[in-house]
Design a protein around this nucleic acid. Structure first.
Length: 275
DNA sequence: AACGGCACCTGGTCGC
DNA sequence: TGCGACCAGGTGCCGT
């Protein structure tokens, strides 16, 4: 489900209701995740105050008095902020209950996400420390991307989805950014011209910023902190549009599979070779 | 070092 | 209506 815009939409939604609140208790109904939810999480978090809600890559970070809670939504996770407790639905795995009665509720059918806690500096956490720059930060420049492209020979689509290169670019936005840039998903990073790297850098930034503005992309089940969908899906140009005409040239869009993920592109606007 | 493939899960959809 | 196959927005880890 969630790529960077969806996570950022969630962050913005839950932050106002959480910052400054004291945690009353934490209820864990299901521990079995990719990394199991620590058994002592409720004990660790009780009575701590939430100081800030931030995001690094697709991780939501709840800064609390003595440490940081890391939440990842995986493929199917969502967070909702309830004004007061309600009976849990299926896959409502974790509740963080505030002293004021509000409940941060984590739902994740596929359990690819995680909820972890650390008292160490967050930048040195194993899941965080090797991440590349934020795409919307000043560190993500064309010069930076060009330097990372040198001698790299994997498909460019796989490359821009690599979180060690740049974080936050998932399958949807990788497809969209490459289309906007006129770059075939199977091209290699070391084959890109300087102009192409500049264009790609710009388009990655632009597509993510626009999607955030629209509240993210809802394909099936993404919902924000209020349980409402995002509206970027109607602006997608190639993702999920195999067999439909290209919005620029009317050529039928084609799908290939890269890294076992569907990749849709326009054979005319995104030629296999730069020429 | 770099790359491809797989695994972790549930649920929705499609074809028979 | 039921069943199996296949697909899905992520990403760490393994073998080559």
């Amino acid at each position: 489900m969630p790529e960077l815009p969806e996570v950022e939409t969630t962050r913005a939604g839950i932050s106002p209701g959480l910052v400054g609140q004291q945690i009353h208790k934490v209820i864990v109904r299901e521990h079995r995740f990719r990394w199991p939810i620590p058994v002592d999480l409720p004990l660790q978090l009780a009575q701590q105050r939430i100081l800030a809600v931030s995001r690094r890559s697709k991780y939501l970070l709840l800064k609390v008095t003595q440490g940081t809670v890391l939440i990842h939504l995986g493929m199917s996770g969502s967070l909702r902020l309830l004004a007061s407790t309600q009976p849990p639905a299926k896959h409502d795995h974790v509740d963080v209950v505030m002293e004021n009665g509000a409940v941060l509720r984590f739902n994740d059918p596929r359990r690819f996400g995680c909820v972890l806690y650390t008292t160490d500096p967050i930048d040195s956490h194993p899941l965080i420390q090797h991440l590349g720059p934020e795409p919307l930060s000043d560190a993500f420049t064309a010069d930076y991307l060009a330097s990372r492209c040198l001698r790299r020979q994997l498909p460019i689509k796989n490359f821009i989805m690599d979180a060690k290169v740049v974080v936050g670019v998932g399958n949807i936005y990788a497809n969209e950014a490459l289309f906007l840039s006129g770059i075939h998903p199977n091209r290699t990073p070391d084959s890109l011209s300087n102009d192409e790297v500049v264009t790609l850098t710009d388009n990655i930034r632009t597509i993510l910023a626009q999607a955030i503005k629209r509240g993210g992309t809802t394909l099936r089940d993404f919902s924000n902190a209020d349980g409402k969908p995002g509206y970027f899906a109607q602006e997608l140009l190639v993702y999920g549009k195999k067999g439909k005409p290209c919005t620029a040239c009317k050529t039928v869009l084609v799908e290939v599979r890269l890294q076992n993920r569907s990749s849709v592109f326009c054979p005319h606007c995104q030629p296999a070779c730069a020429d």
